[in-house]
Simulated scan of single mutants.
Amino acid sequence: MSDIYFGTDLFSELDRLQRQISSLFGGYPSSLRSSRSGTFPPINIGTTDDSVEIVAFAPGVDPQKLDISVDKGLLTIAGERTGTRAQLPESARQYAQERFSGAFRRVIELPQQADPDKVKARYADGCLLISVGKREASRPRAITVQ
């Protein structure tokens, strides 16, 4: 039997330890699935037969100040979100803030079939919509049996 006793749930302690270690190393996740909550901008990724579709939810970001690049299979979204217009009065003591403001950078690993020469991006209604075309050889095709 072990002499170690945790006064709380072991899994919550491990989660706390992982968050502390992540903060020591800048909090950069090793993959999209391991990203911590609060990462900005939050994204959705899907695929069609012809492309990889990425939606980054970035309200309050000036689309002219967004920098999108693809290098070595990594899609990078960088920019800055300025502070909110609705500030608390000076006499108020703030005890919670959920809206992020400041510089951000998000890196997404693209699948191998993505073609870095076929990237299109547009910004609409607070969402950055990125479409990355797939290489011709990776598209599904029907084979006729003779």
Rank of each mutant, 00 (worst) to 15 (best):
S2K: 13
Y5F: 15
F6W: 14
L10W: 10
L14T: 11
L17P: 03
S23G: 12
F25Q: 13
G26I: 09
Y28W: 09
L32T: 09
R33L: 10
R36I: 05
G38R: 07
T39Y: 07
F40L: 08
I43A: 08
N44F: 06
N44C: 04
I45T: 09
I45C: 03
T47D: 06
T48G: 11
E53Y: 01
F57V: 13
A58Q: 03
A58H: 08
P59C: 05
V61F: 10
K65R: 15
L66D: 02
D67T: 10
D67A: 12
S69Q: 12
V70M: 02
K72Q: 14
G73I: 06
L75Y: 00
T76D: 00
A78N: 05
A78C: 05
T82D: 15
T82Y: 08
T84H: 08
T84E: 12
A86K: 09
Q87P: 04
P89D: 11
A92R: 11
A92P: 02
A92W: 09
Y95K: 08
Y95W: 10
A96S: 13
R99Q: 08
F100H: 04
S101Y: 03
G102H: 07
R105Y: 00
R106D: 00
V107F: 00
I108R: 00
Q113G: 04
D115Q: 07
D117T: 07
Y123F: 15
Y123A: 05
A124V: 10
L128P: 03
I130K: 00
S131H: 01
G133H: 02
G133V: 04
P140Y: 01
P140D: 05
P140E: 07
R141L: 05
R141S: 10
I143Y: 04
